[in-house]
Nucleic acid binder design. Structure first.
Lengths: 380, 380
DNA sequence: CTGTTAGCGCATTCAG
DNA sequence: CTGAATGCGCTAACAG
């Protein structure tokens, strides 16, 4: 008892065997309520926290959750991670972060996924927006390693996934501009290697079509999800003769829209007076720290909730009894093509979170307004 | 050998005892070079990575590094963490992130520091910009728990620390404006609970004094390190009668400067023509993702390097032989007041990294220009 | 320089 | 419902 208390100390103090203490700590049902309470009280008094390393080793199941992120500088990460951290903070799990580094890891025969598997350090993995080929994740999943994917570009079938309906959101953004009376609506896409870029574009096309508007190829340009791309594309659009120039732009994300704003200023184009602008993402961590004028009408992705839900889902994969499944907590849409995966018997592994349209000044709205998107309406 | 190889498998394949394998893995010097190579080859072939949990348990020294961050959304974090992750990626250590959540943790009798100590999960801690009272960190340090602090508001004496010389940087920013010919230079401070806000302000005062300029109290306002504060303060400054209005503003960080830009636009004030503006930080993760016009003249803090150096320092605290100390790699300035701490015999635990002045359009410079700051010249 | 022996702190059998 | 025994995978003393 010189250092921190160990489970033996607690057992001694409680007058029980350490096996019983262990049972209580692991939420086993078959313990006498009285002794359970006594043990918990002593645990509390002593400030006892059991060693994650030891219990992981002994039980074969660690209480560390891995989070794989492309880069800490990817703007979505802070928002998502705050949600992740909030849920983890309520549990006795901790977070191990793996980031995909530009530079080579020391042992470059073994990639990160191998490393995650080989160290057997973490009990499960949350993969955020992975730039890794999804097959790697599929491999993990196939090996019965619990994985949840957030917004991956093309989630392997049956890998649990949390995200939004990008097509519906693209549809809503475009429809908003149409309802404002715009007829020449441009779209600056995200990088077309990403599935979400395609989906948002599909929503754009669908909205035009549903409104009987023509899809004008000149008004669709591929950006890069960064201001540089938005700026370059907007310059092209703004240099068009007035009669062909768009009166509104749907940018595939906010950063692209920032580039559009810069280009507009260069060209003496006033937003929203001359051109209306809609973005996509509405990151809390960004909007709190910069001061973009005019404020952007945009699609808000619920990143914080994505973080929460994805960790909750992962935890339920790890310990169903403690962290019950979410049958009724969210809307989900089943991928019914699964065959053979052990996850098949589960509820479908795709969780769609509701996005919303946030109307602000860049479309001419005097007062901000948040409009929830309707449930998966227009999805083909 | 059905699952992942274990150290026994390697030992068997190499025809040695597992103790020897362990010695090799732990970089012990006393192993026959030939067998060492053979073992390493087999380790490589098998893709063997030893369990962090088990080796931590057995050796009493884990290979997990804790990183304590206030919030993932704090803008400095991505830049720093990328540097941290790069160094960690070269080692066999992994990162455990602890973030200070607004909400209560489940067991709120035990704060995060206690938790970090109690789980004995991590071998050391990097505390970034902690909003926690520094005494907590001092407690860790006193318990011989290896800690390194980045840019903490008031680092306890003798706790290893990595950062910049804020006073010198504030001095350089202000002097730049003076050299441009400005005489009425305002300063929008950071929140004055933070030490760095005081230091930057001191640099500002010193620069004015050295130039024989009066310190005008009306021109010093306290912001909050966010655009809202910058905007509010700038409105006050811009509403002053022309003869008292500043011709230049030194904002204590870039986010504050963004607020100034917004206020300028509101008031029809042109930057840099009417008012020159200097910021502070120059975060790579921010500038890459937004498109602020005009581009900000600012002080660049080497956050990526801070991340790298702080982890290297922490690693050297943990394993001096493997990760040698940094006697000659950086300039440092000793805090010679230490008494009794075991770190005393070490090289001084304060590492000052060089900042630089980045000249851009917000001061009227047509072309960006980076000027390294001179070594700790003007520090009192 | 190397093998043998004991645990690290805990979860999990298996009896009772 | 509970205690005693066994071992997770690895490192750290020991001897040799």
């Amino acid at each position: 008892m010189s250092g921190r208390p160990t489970i033996d100390d607690i057992a001694r103090l409680a007058g029980v065997s350490k096996a019983t203490v262990s049972r209580v700590l692991n939420h086993k049902p078959d313990v006498d309520p009285a002794t359970r309470d006594r043990i918990l009280r002593i645990v509390e008094e002593q400030g006892f926290i059991r060693s994650i390393a030891a219990s992981g080793l002994a039980g074969g199941r660690s209480r560390l959750i891995g989070v794989l992120i492309p880069s800490f500088a990817w703007p979505l990460i802070p928002d998502i991670m705050n949600g992740v951290a909030e849920v983890i903070g309520e549990t006795d799990y901790e977070l191990v972060t793996y980031s995909i580094n530009d530079r080579i890891r020391r042992n470059n025969h073994v990639d990160i996924i191998d490393r995650i598997l080989a160290t057997k350090l973490t009990a499960g993995l949350l993969a955020i927006y992975s730039a890794q080929p999804p097959q790697h994740l599929a491999r993990l999943h196939r090996q019965d390693f619990p994985v949840v994917v957030i917004d991956d570009q093309d989630p392997p079938p049956n890998v649990p996934w949390v995200g939004i309906d990008n097509k519906a959101a693209g549809y809503a953004a475009t429809r908003h501009l149409i309802q404002l009376g715009h007829r020449r609506i441009a779209h600056i896409q995200g990088p077309m290697q990403l599935l979400c870029s395609h989906e948002r574009y599909e929503g754009y096309c669908q909205a035009l079509q549903d409104a009987g508007l023509p899809l004008l190829p000149d008004l669709v340009l591929e950006g890069n999800f960064a201001p540089t791309g938005g700026r370059a594309c907007a310059r092209i659009l703004f240099s068009m003769p007035p009669e062909r120039r768009p009166t509104a732009i749907f940018a595939a994300n906010d950063q692209t829209a920032y580039g559009v704003l810069a280009a507009a200023e260069e060209n003496g184009i006033h937003i929203p007076h001359d051109v209306a602008l809609v973005g996509f993402d509405d990151l809390a961590s960004t909007t709190a720290h910069i001061d973009i004028r005019p404020e952007l009408t945009t699609i808000r992705q619920p990143f914080y909730e994505m973080g929460q839900r994805s960790i909750e889902l992962l935890l339920s994969l790890l310990e169903k009894p403690r962290f019950p499944a979410y049958e009724n907590r969210w809307r989900y849409s089943a991928d019914s093509t699964g065959r053979g995966s052990h996850i098949d018997e589960e509820k479908p592994p795709r969780i769609y979170l509701p996005a919303s349209l946030v109307v602000r000044a860049s479309c001419g709205s005097p007062h901000p307004l948040t409009i929830p998107l309707p449930p998966l309406d227009s999805s083909a």
